[in-house]
């Protein structure tokens, strides 16, 4: 407990004022970080086990004694998965990538455009629009599921990726997020550009967007992750194997009559590795972006 409260003091502030803090040997600090590493290892071990199991035989994966080194090491689970015509994992993967990518682009574009006047312009109806955005931010998405199913059905989008990309792109959160960023942006550059005779769109594109890139990237990443992880909606609006996204596909892999844990884990790994890679390159960016634009009310 003490060590955790200690950590509340950032080291930038230098060693703590209390006597034991100043005298604390480096060894003790090293031990603390070692403990952190061990904890992290336990924390991540389920993911490691998933990876390991995907290289096991069917029998070993269903065995009662967990093993951390596949014996024999085999790719048969992946082979089975990629060969099965009913579980086109690569198609699901492409679908997820397309849907999440386009959805993120749509969210960033529409939310940034909408947030700008809400942050920078005075006009009649502004309070109504912003009020609606805030209200819908508070409303849980569940009330939209049933009616949106009917709307999407009428638009002829059931069983198509459009149903995954477009409806969730109406992001009240995105507008709120971008507006917070714009409000905190110093306005001098924009004013200078306006006085130079640029119109509002030119100011937005040439002055604001370059400044807002970190926030837009952060929003894009959050939207991408949200869409990639979305489960309920794809499960119900996608019917055919070739239109499924990865989460919906994984659910169908978990067949009722025939559980093949090696294959399931292989599917889970295929669904994980790419986002993990993406994330490991961009995680700093997410955190820095969030702290810069701030989720401060």
């Amino acid at each position: 407990m003490t060590s955790i409260q200690d950590a509340a003091t950032p080291p930038v502030a230098g060693p703590g004022g209390a006597a034991d803090d100043t005298l604390r040997p480096a060894r003790r600090r090293a031990l603390r970080y070692l403990a952190l590493y061990l904890l992290a290892l336990v924390f991540v071990s389920p993911l490691l086990y998933m990876l390991v199991t995907s290289f096991k035989t069917r029998a070993e994966a269903a065995g009662t004694t967990p093993s951390w080194i596949p014996d024999p090491f085999t790719l048969q689970a992946y082979g089975h998965l990629l060969a099965a015509p009913d579980t086109p994992v690569l198609t699901w993967f492409a679908n997820s990538l397309i849907a999440a990518g386009l959805n993120a682009a749509l969210v960033v574009a529409t939310a940034s455009l909408a947030a700008y006047p809400l942050a920078r312009m005075e006009f009649r109806g502004k309070r109504v629009v912003f009020g609606l955005v805030i209200a819908m931010l508070m409303v849980p998405g569940v009330i939209l599921v049933i009616p949106n199913y009917l709307i999407v059905s009428e638009l002829g989008w059931l069983n198509s990726l459009t149903a995954i990309i477009v409806p969730t792109a109406a992001s009240a959160f995105g507008v709120f997020f971008m507006r917070q960023f714009f409000v905190n942006l110093p306005g001098e550059l924009e004013e200078a550009a306006l006085l130079d005779g640029a119109n509002r769109f030119q100011v937005f594109v040439q002055v604001v967007v370059p400044l807002a890139r970190p926030a837009m990237a952060t929003l894009a990443l959050l939207a991408f992750l949200t869409n990639w992880n979305d489960f309920l909606w794809p499960v119900y609006v996608l019917f055919s194997p070739e239109t499924r996204t990865l989460p919906a596909g994984l659910a169908t892999l978990q067949g009722a009559n025939q559980v093949r844990y090696d294959v399931l884990m292989a599917g889970a790994v295929i669904a994980s590795v790419p986002v993990m890679l993406l994330f490991s390159f961009l995680q700093r960016f997410i955190i820095e972006g969030v702290s810069r634009s701030g989720l401060k009310g």
Partner: peptide
């Protein structure tokens, strides 16, 4: 930090199946 955030990246389907 990445390790602790990692599961969240995976989505409910992967972690539930796992």
């Amino acid at each position: 930090r990445a390790v602790y955030f990692a599961p969240y990246v995976l989505g409910v389907a992967v972690i539930s199946v796992l």
